[in-house]
Amino acid sequence: MTNRERREALEFYLGISPWLIGLVCFTGGPILASLAISFTQWRLLSPPKWLGIQNYIDMFQDEGTRVSLGNTLFYTGLSVPLGLVTSLFVALLLNQRARGSTLFRTLFYLPTITSGVAMALLWLWLLNPEFGLINLALGLIGIKGPAWLQDPDWAKPALVLMSLWTIGTSMVIFLAGLQGMPQHLYDAAKIDGANQLREFWHVTVPMLTPTIFFVMVTSIIASFQTFTNVYVMTEGGPGWSTLMYGLYLYNNAFEYLRMGFASAMAWGLFLVILALTILQLLGARRWVYYEGGIRGRI
């Protein structure tokens, strides 16, 4: 290694050191600490006691964990596909060269940067069964709206509906993907006589699969960690129908003083997300197309 290369390497490590130190000390440290805490009973106000794997065993027997995981899976199962389709649809619309499209892009993105608490309070009003705008709109077409957040059967679908409010980030990613589409593929499709639907299905979708895959993975991770909306809007009710995993974890840590159990829950969540991500990576070999890459390798 020459002196210049050595100096450049030094500059490189100095440059990234603030982030690296932050990662090791303020993220890596607590991550490892939480693993150690998950093997203890720690009520925060008194020293931790070693429990071994008892917290992990308790997790499987705990009704709250079971219910909250079920609720979270339901929420993820509905909100992620719906969010993907909606954000792709909106991105396709906003990808048109029409007047005012920049304004609409901004408008669709705005809810994403709105405070989560403010958004939750706004949706409490929108979803109000008696006077909310959603039931008012349903009433106009002759449908009697449900009690939404006051009804255990409709509370989770209400949260799914609300999740569509924040499709801005996915929409921007899809928009970037769409704008990077090579024009010559569309030209070739046109020469072959493809209509717009066929262009979309045989050119846009395959070329967009890496973006769809990325948005899907990050959306699943985010939806498993959903917290603010249920913390502010429902506190997990009515009757635990919106008790999400993240809220139950928080309650265990800071309300019930079961920090060891909460840490075990956090690691449980990590393992669930890791398993799902690995499954998605394996599945991606079958449907994600990387231009210039070898099919089946990602």
Binding site: R43, G64, Q150, D151, P152, E235, G236, G237, P238, G239, W240, N251, E255, Y256, L257, R258
Partner: peptide
């Protein structure tokens, strides 16, 4: 009591259902 807070999760769940006429 120390374990009372943990109990409140159960209490709130059931009182929610009672107060909303759901159980």
């Amino acid at each position: 009591s120390p374990y009372g807070a943990e109990f409140t999760a159960i209490r709130n769940r059931e009182m929610d259902l009672i107060n909303n006429g759901l159980k």
